[in-house]
């Protein structure tokens, strides 16, 4: 098996998932709607005081992003599990971890990227300064792939279960905490006008770590779930 055919398999898998997503456009909108709705509940809940909103905005936007990621991550393997194509990936001659990475990439393009694009709007709604919105964008750009990568391990462990949803949140949310901490404090720091390079480097480090380890853990977990 040469590396050419592996690259091809990787790209074909991404194309297939993107095409499936485009044909179910309504489902694609759900996580974004959820993200926007949850964020807009906060001003209603805690009052529309601009100073207060600006203070809580980084945390609120990031918690909403975590929940939206958690809500959508289950789809990364669910439909493939139900129609049996997941078993075909495991049987194929390509390394499962690479195929899994393709699935996660496609999933991030479908659900993570739209969150990213809509986030400046939410920043404006909550009264964040422009500099902080830029940083928010970068943290989401670096952070949401981490959420997808970690979430995929959880989904791979629970995909065979009938009631995996509640357990999934118990498995995955504690592992999301470092991203939440670094990302929201980066936005906070940027809103205070201080440099944020250290925060961003740490999130990038988390991304690289997740990128290099999560596909293997996910592949191993899929093998267990489908055995």
């Amino acid at each position: 098996m040469n590396s050419d055919s592996l690259t091809r398999a990787f790209l074909i898998l991404i194309r297939r998932d993107l095409m499936l997503a485009v044909r179910h456009r309504a489902e694609m909108a759900n996580p974004i709607l959820f993200f926007v709705l949850v964020t807009s509940l906060f001003p209603l809940g805690i009052g529309a005081n601009p100073a207060l909103l600006q203070a809580v905005a980084p945390g609120v936007i990031w918690v909403a992003a975590l929940l939206a990621a958690l809500l959508s991550i289950e789809n990364v393997f669910r439909s493939d599990f139900e129609d049996g194509s997941l078993e075909q990936y495991l049987l194929s001659s390509h390394p499962v971890s690479v195929l899994v990475l393709a699935k996660i990439t496609a999933h991030w393009l479908i659900t993570g990227l739209p969150l990213l694009l809509i986030s400046p709007l939410l920043g404006i709604l909550l009264g964040l300064p422009v500099d902080a919105i830029k940083v928010l964008f970068i943290t989401l750009l670096l952070g949401t792939p981490v959420l997808s990568l970690i979430g995929a391990v959880g989904v791979a462990l629970t995909v065979g279960l009938r009631k995996g949803g509640m357990i999934l949140s118990l498995l995955v949310l504690p592992l999301y905490i470092p991203v939440l901490i670094f990302a929201s404090s980066a936005v906070d720091t940027a809103a205070a006008g201080l440099p944020v390079t250290a925060h961003l480097s740490l999130i990038a480090a988390l991304l690289l770590l997740a990128l290099s380890l999560s596909p293997f853990a996910t592949a191993a977990a899929l093998r267990v779930s489908l055995s």
Partner: peptide, 30 residues
Amino acid sequence: ALNNAIDDKRTAARAVAILALVGVINIPII
């Protein structure tokens, strides 16, 4: 919870092992 959710004990044990390993990498980070 993961151990309780999977009926087959050996499958459950392997799933739990993977989760515990992911957790142990994350503990210092957290």
